[in-house]
Design a binder for these strands. Structure first.
Lengths: 341, 341
DNA sequence: CTGAAAGCGCTTACAG
DNA sequence: CTGAAAGCGCTTACAG
């Protein structure tokens, strides 16, 4: 790579002047400025981000810690984040957690030495556990900005950019109940805070409609298709056929669809399904999936903007809530008679 | 962040000695070595990757240029790449091309200044076009290693780690023909080299079985669900009902499924579908999708290994071909009578 | 306005 | 074996 001295030599000035042309151009005589600019263009000079970063202490790089980039929601969000960051001149380091706590802790330990300016934590896994809390605290002590999506941390002061999951699940549940469906099962991901928040909304939705929730209707599908399928199959096998299912994510909704199909249950006629996230593929499945949807491009942009504001040392809101809307599709349309009628 | 001088002071040695403990430990007296190691542990010191990189000229960072991280195949491959790279101590910069040539060219121009050691180009978009060729040549001139997946470049000496797409499409086509299906349509992505390679395999498969391919059976679905749906719908509207469809990717297969459903055509009874890639979701759709599959973890690992070998200056094979297998699922099972029988 | 100098945090010949 | 010095490619007070 051509460096600043090459350019200086070519333009007949000192390296300092080349640097000034790049950073404070008005300080430089037009004559020299033009010569430098010409040399830069001719040699195709680009200042090394890291030599510059070493001096300035900022590398224009963010890290995205994602639960599982292979999941459609995360992939779609990662895309939005990358595009938004790139627009601001930042690069994005991809860190796939593979839903493993040891990986998260490892990244929190190793990322500071990589000179990143901030991290975005996008995982539904619970961060409010001692090991993560400790690693996160040590991380933040090094004055690197952090923002989470998908959860609002209790124990550590990290700003969150989130959808109100409780409200989303509440709306989803109400939609099924308004369709006259009951019982309605909840297909979540076990004890994670994220899943608990959805479960709260589900319970509230049931309560508001005068229904009593039952533990056996709270299914643990581990956020994955396969275990979700088994959880729904187990519910059916024990004799309960729910008239609706609120699924936390699309892969689990797929698992539910398969389990229902094996028992020849129709969606939405026998069982209506609604999902608490939206991804492109949801619109194209059969039946297409009714979802609580958020504009993921806006989500990614907002998360990046918040993180960059924090990087710049500005005060940022402790929590930013993005709007969500119900997208009606075939798995739980605007109106469909309950199976008994 | 604590730096090497802090450690040196704490251990009562010079920074040089600390550096040696890290890089050539046997050169250092055990006594001092232990003191330094203790100080490192106590202060939780980690040498800055970029200060080190500035000296050494290597930053232990790879860039992954991906056509669209939101597509399931790319997301799954990105995961494999990230895990493999991290295992070798490398970080991965995520660069989403959004299938736009200007973004690809922009990344090729801007990545060198970011001090990456190599790039992995994972896109089905055609790279053998003048603008990209020029940018790629300028990129390679800076002595940064590059590897492509998914295509073998004609014009530039970049090693490729690929599945033999022609053979894959050939096998896929033959499977449908062996089922007694004809006509069989090909659902590809227009003029891209990637799609052309698949089309070649499709044509060869037809030819081998004694069928004459017809241009109207070659559909352009642009690698996306929506246009694929329109392309299949158009074929049906014009009166042709294929007994089988070879789809280049899963999103297009979804589009085909929808178009067929709208005409009440059953899969696989009326129309069998086979896809030339495999992603987790394919197994869980209804009908589940028969696919030509490749172990994506092995794929990612192989791509990273090849790239790192190139970074290290070793000779690497111009092209590495990974094996593929047919995964039989419901959309084109082992045996199903043709619709006419 | 501009150049020479110092320094960001490392590594590695160079003396000793 | 070890420290002082130089240098990776920048930026920015500091003189002038």
């Amino acid at each position: 790579m051509v460096n600043i001295s090459d350019v200086a030599r070519a333009a007949g000035v000192s390296p300092s002047t080349v640097s000034r042309v790049l950073n404070q151009p008005d300080i430089v005589t037009p004559d020299k400025r033009d010569r430098v600019l010409a040399a830069i263009a001719r040699l195709n000079y680009q200042p090394s981000t890291f030599a510059r970063g070493l001096r300035r202490g900022t590398f224009e790089t963010l890290a995205l810690l994602v639960g599982d980039i292979a999941q459609p929601f995360h992939g779609r969000l990662a895309k939005a984040v990358e595009l938004a960051a790139e627009e601001k001149g930042y690069s994005v380091l991809l860190c796939d957690l593979d839903h493993r706590q040891d990986r998260l802790v490892g990244f929190l330990r190793s990322l500071p030495k990589r000179g990143i300016d901030g991290i975005l934590i996008a995982t539904a896994d619970n961060l409010d556990v001692p090991a993560v809390h400790e690693a996160l605290t040590a991380f933040l002590a090094q004055d690197i900005a952090a923002v989470t999506t998908s959860q609002h941390l209790q124990s550590v002061p990290v700003p969150a950019v989130v959808v109100d999951r409780t409200a989303a699940a509440h709306d989803a549940t109400r939609h099924l109940l308004d369709l006259g469906r009951w019982p309605v099962a909840f297909l979540g991901g076990g004890a994670s805070a994220y899943s608990q928040r959805l479960a709260d909304g589900y319970r509230a939705g049931c309560r508001d409609a005068g229904h009593r929730t039952q533990p056996r209707l709270m299914l643990d599908g581990g956020f994955q298709t396969e275990p979700a399928m088994r959880a729904v199959a187990a519910l059916l096998a024990e004799g309960t056929i729910p008239e609706g299912i609120v699924a936390a994510n699309v892969p689990m909704a797929l698992g539910a669809l398969r389990a229902l199909a094996e028992r020849d249950l129709d969606v939405p006629d026998d069982v209506a399904i609604i999902v608490c996230e939206d991804v492109p593929v949801a619109a194209y499945m059969r039946p297409s999936l009714t979802c609580v949807s958020t504009d993921l491009d806006a989500y990614g942009r907002r998360a990046v903007d918040t993180l960059l504001a924090a990087v710049a040392g500005h005060d940022v809101p402790r929590v930013t809530v993005l709007p969500h809307t119900l997208i009606l599709r075939d798995s739980a349309p605007a109106a469909v008679p309950p199976p008994g009628s």
